[in-house]
Amino acid sequence: MKVLANMPEFQSIVSMQDLDVAEVEQLISRAEDFKAGAQLKLTEPVYVSNLFFENSTRTHTSFEMAERKLGLTVINFDPQASSMSKGETLHDTALSLDAVGVNLLVVRHPQNDYYNELLGHADLSLGLINAGDGSGEHPSQSLLDMMTIAEQFGDFTGLRVAIIGDLTHSRVARSNMEILQRLGAELFFSGPKAWYSQEFAQYGTYLPIDDLVEKTDVMMLLRVQHERHPGEQAFDTQSYFERYGLTKERASRLPEQAIIMHPGPVNRNVELASDLVEGKQSRFVTQMQNGVYMRMAMLESVLRGNHLGGLV
């Protein structure tokens, strides 16, 4: 096991802000090992519960696959069928799962920073991975994106990354721009100007998509959540596509090495032309595949941080 010396150890992973550049690179490297077939041999059983308050099937499935590939025992937990509906708090639910022997929680919850209710409590000894909090962060999505970029380019320094679309409502945008800047990438933003606020100016420059396509290495498209813009004019998907979307014409002007990324689910012919989703430069499917391996790396680092599974 060549990685041992470099394997990061965490008691929990809740925010990209907690990871330094070296740790991100180590997680990517370990995820690539898993992708290449590396296996983990647990000598003690580990029990994990996935608490998905939101019905995010894709992330849930990806985590469960990663857990099973690592040989963890998955204890299903349905918040609706639990005693939470009888008034139990999140903290008390975690306490009872801890008490029956669960070692690790993976939680998706609609409230920002929900994890503050679970961290730093002397009565809880569970490892925790945040699988998304409200409009806050989604660390595993960020890390799988970084892995996908690293696979193509190796190094982030000087890489030109464009984040395009619904910046305001995207937790992907927030997490990614912050880590990409730290990794040394150069950032650009595009999409409707109204969605680009001062908050983004410290990370990168706004440019119309037509001025971007010829000099971009990574086109990171965001899902448009048009329903989250009440009071604005009726949202016309066709005109959005024409003005801000990645059309086939625009894609034809991309540099040869450039890749197209999207966190899914894709609105075809809104953010990008339908044919491009399966195209040569698209990494849409790779992102989903990498998600499993990156989640394996994250889970392993938290197992190690909590001395679980008999890993040495």
Binding site: F53, E54, P79, Q80, S82, M84, S85, K86, G87, L90, H109, P110, Q111, N112, Y114, G134, S135
Partner: peptide, 11 residues
């Protein structure tokens, strides 16, 4: 967000 969470956890 707390209302969404309250609905999801049965409160």
């Amino acid at each position: 967000q707390a209302l969404v969470a309250g609905l999801l956890d049965g409160t």
